[in-house]
Structures are given as C-alpha cells and as structure tokens.
Amino acid sequence: MNHLGEVHLRTWTLRFMALLAAEARDQLVWLGERELETKDVVEEVELLCRVSEELAERRAFEPEDMRNLRAIGQRLGEIDATCRVGLWGNALATDPAWDDIRSLARRFLLARSGDWRQPLPRPVPPDTGGR
C-alpha cells in the first residue's frame, strides 16, 4: 500500500467513525432518501476495522485507536444475521446495537482527536443507474 492509499483509508475510517458517532437523528438526516442496507454498513465498517490493522503496523493508528476499532468490530460481529437485514435507517431506530456502536465510535474519536463531534462525511449521491 502506498502513502496516498494509507492516507485515503485512514481518512475514510475517521469519516465513517464520525458518521457512526453522530446522534441517531443526524445519521437519519445524513441518510436522507438513500436506502442504505444495514448489511452494507456492517460490511464496510468491518472492512475498515480489518484494514486499520495493517495501517496500525505502519503507524497510521495508535494502539489505543486499535483497541477502540477492535471493540467496534467485535460489537458489529455480535449483530446477528436477522438484524443485518433491511435498511440501516430502520436498524438505527430499532436495534440497540447501534447505540453501543455509537458509544464506541465516540470513544474512538475522543481518544483520537479530543472530541467525538466531527463533520459528517459528504453523502455519496444515490446511484442514478448510469443516467
């Protein structure tokens, strides 16, 4: 992995953690009309947690960062398959696991930057099907 790839992945991890740490109402506003599947969110965060292990070997993340990211990955792994089905906006309102993940993401950001309140990533425009 080159330096630019490392910077991109670290930045994406930090932005995604900001989204996970946000208040549920802010997450729902961020979602807007997008229909983001819960399983896709879980898979993306699990991937970021795994990639962060390699980034930590290159000192892009501190050991405390990794403890927090591992805790997030572990909590995500505890979400059973039935709770991964459906839209993430619905899961945010009904599955208490997302409250736990929110708390863990806040702990990560607090340790990393001293404040869990971070700008949310710019939403990716909905797929227009090639239009």
Rank of each mutant, 00 (worst) to 15 (best):
E44C: 07
D40I: 09
V7S: 06
A97L: 10
Q27T: 04
D100I: 11
V45C: 15
R75S: 12
V85Y: 11
R25F: 02
I79S: 07
V51W: 07
R10F: 01
P123H: 07
A91V: 00
R10W: 01
D127P: 04
P121E: 02
E33N: 06
D95Y: 11
V29L: 10
N2G: 12
G130N: 09
R106I: 03
G73Q: 03
R102E: 03
E44H: 07
P119W: 02
H8A: 12
L14N: 12
D115H: 12
Q74V: 14
W30H: 14
I101D: 02
R15I: 01
E43Y: 04
R70W: 13
Q118D: 01
A18Y: 01
L109K: 07
E44N: 10
F61R: 06
D127Q: 10
L48A: 13
H8E: 08
G129K: 01
E57C: 00
W88Q: 05
V85F: 08
D65Q: 08
R50M: 05
L47I: 01
M17V: 02
V41Q: 07
G77Y: 04
G5D: 10
E78S: 10
E43R: 15
R15C: 05
W116G: 01
L69F: 05
V85A: 13
E44P: 00
L14T: 05
A56Q: 15
E62Q: 15
G89S: 11
T38A: 13
G89Q: 12
W30N: 03
L47V: 02
C49E: 08
A21Y: 04
G73Y: 02
C49T: 11
L109N: 06
V124N: 04
V51D: 14
W88K: 07
E43F: 02
L55D: 03
V51I: 12
R122L: 11
P63I: 04
L47R: 15
E44S: 14
E53Y: 03
Q27S: 08
E53N: 08
R70V: 11
D80G: 09
A97R: 13
V42N: 09
G114V: 03
A93W: 00
V42W: 09
N68S: 14
R107Y: 00
A81H: 10
L69I: 05
V45I: 15
R10H: 05
R107L: 14
R106M: 06
L36H: 05
R58Q: 13
N68H: 15
E53V: 14
S113G: 13
R75K: 15
N90H: 04
M17W: 03
L110I: 02
N68F: 07
L28Q: 12
P125C: 10
